[in-house]
Every structure is written in structure tokens, then in C-alpha cells.
């Protein structure tokens, strides 16, 4: 995971509340077996609408999503975060996030900053007055700057530290690899291993057929 201290990019005003994960990425895309390439799936239902914000030229390269309360509710699908990241978003700002979505974002290196509803409204106005305007998000100072306006945002201390250090869960855990190895040395020899495989004598499994076939 890349370290994030500050990010500057085009702000995208999404004037909606309660954007659930089904809207972020519809269920049909869950059948894929890849982890990347979900950019086309992001907000798929809305992208068909020409007036949708991401269909406007000025916002197409956006990387900071500024949205209403309760973003990411509903199904716990991690695909919602993959889709946002694959599209190019680095930060989502909202007055309130669904817990699971926020947790998943932290794991994948997507910054979720909590900004008061009042300040979200101010940022929306600035972004709409000047489409394509840049926003700077400083994780170090926990501030969002848009033109003359600088407002604070909240983020969990532990998640912030991980993002600043660029540590995903796995690399964080691997910092303790020696402890894992030491623990492994204490495991009793009775504990089962899947390899080499042991099974009872094999039978040939005939395919079942319909009774009347």
C-alpha cells in the first residue's frame, strides 16, 4: 500500500445521502473473479444518466469524492472499495459512513474523512461554482482545503497511522513475522496438516442422473 500524507486532486460533488454499496457497485459485478478492473462498475446504474456528475468532463478525472451522510451502507461487499479505487478515487469525504465500508476502506488504503454536514455543503458549493476545482486533503493535519476554505476532518487514529505509514493489514502483520514463526514452533505435533493429503481409500464417483433418465 502506498503511503498517504497529503493528496491533491479534483473534487467530485455527489449530492446524495444513503449511497449504499449496491449503488456503488451493483450485484451483477460480484461474479467477477478479478480484483482489479472494476472502474466500469462504479455507480454503474447512475453512469447511464448523462447528467450524472462523473459523466461531466470536468469531474471525470476526480479523485476526491465529496458526498452526503451514510455512505457505503448495505451489503458488506469489499468490491465497493475496489471500484472506487480502480476508478481513481483516493479520498471520500462524508458526514457519516457505514462502519463496514469504513473498515474495508481502511484496509485497502482509501481515505474516509468525516466532515460536518455544514462544511460538506460549503465544499459542494465551491466545487459546483468551479467544476474541476482541486481539493487538498492533509492526513497529517486532518484538514481539507478547497480554495480559501480549510476545514477539519475526523478519522480513526489507528487507521490514520496505518495510512500515513502505507501499511496494509498484511504488511503490518508481516512486521511481526518473527513472532509468528516463534509461535509456530510451539504448536503441538498433534495439530493436523492438510499436506500430505490423507484420505480414506478412493472410490470412483459416478455422476448421479435424473431418476427417469
Amino acid at each position: 500500500m502506498e503511503k498517504i500524507t497529503t493528496h491533491t486532486g479534483i473534487g467530485v460533488p455527489l449530492r446524495r445521502s444513503n449511497v449504499d454499496t449496491d449503488q456503488i457497485i451493483p450485484a451483477v459485478y460480484l461474479k467477477r473473479v478479478t480484483r482489479t478492473g472494476f472502474e466500469d462498475a462504479l455507480f454503474a446504474a447512475w453512469r447511464g444518466d448523462e447528467s450524472f456528475v462523473l459523466n461531466q468532463e470536468a469531474y471525470k478525472q476526480g479523485s476526491v469524492l465529496v458526498t452526503g451522510p451514510d455512505f457505503g451502507t448495505g451489503s458488506s461487499r469489499e468490491h465497493a472499495v475496489w471500484a472506487l479505487k480502480d476508478y481513481g478515487f483516493k479520498v471520500v469525504l462524508a458526514p457519516r459512513f457505514a462502519d463496514i465500508f469504513r473498515g474495508n476502506s481502511g484496509k485497502q488504503g482509501l481515505v474516509t474523512g468525516i466532515v460536518t454536514q455544514e462544511n460538506i455543503e460549503l465544499i459542494w458549493k465551491l466545487l459546483e461554482a468551479e467544476p474541476g476545482k482541486q481539493i487538498t486533503v492533509s492526513l497529517e493535519d486532518r484538514t481539507v482545503t478547497c480554495g480559501e476554505l480549510t476545514v477539519p476532518f475526523e478519522i480513526d487514529d489507528y487507521v490514520r497511522w496505518r495510512l500515513l505509514e502505507g501499511l496494509d493489514d498484511i504488511s503490518l502483520t508481516l512486521k511481526h513475522e518473527e513472532e509468528i514463526t516463534a509461535f509456530e514452533a510451539t504448536r503441538g505435533s498433534w495439530r493436523p496438516k492438510t499436506l500430505p493429503a490423507k484420505t480414506e481409500p478412493g472410490f470412483h464417483v459416478e455422476a448421479a442422473r435424473p431418476v427417469d433418465a
Binding site: S76, E78, Q108, I170, T173, L174, E177
Partner: peptide
């Protein structure tokens, strides 16, 4: 979840 599946695969 799937991220945790990856975590277990990589670190046990």
C-alpha cells in the same frame, strides 16, 4: 471476508 482470506493465506 475476502480481504481476511488473503490475510490468512499470506500470514496464517
Amino acid at each position: 471476508g475476502t480481504s481476511e482470506v488473503e490475510h490468512v493465506l499470506a500470514t496464517q
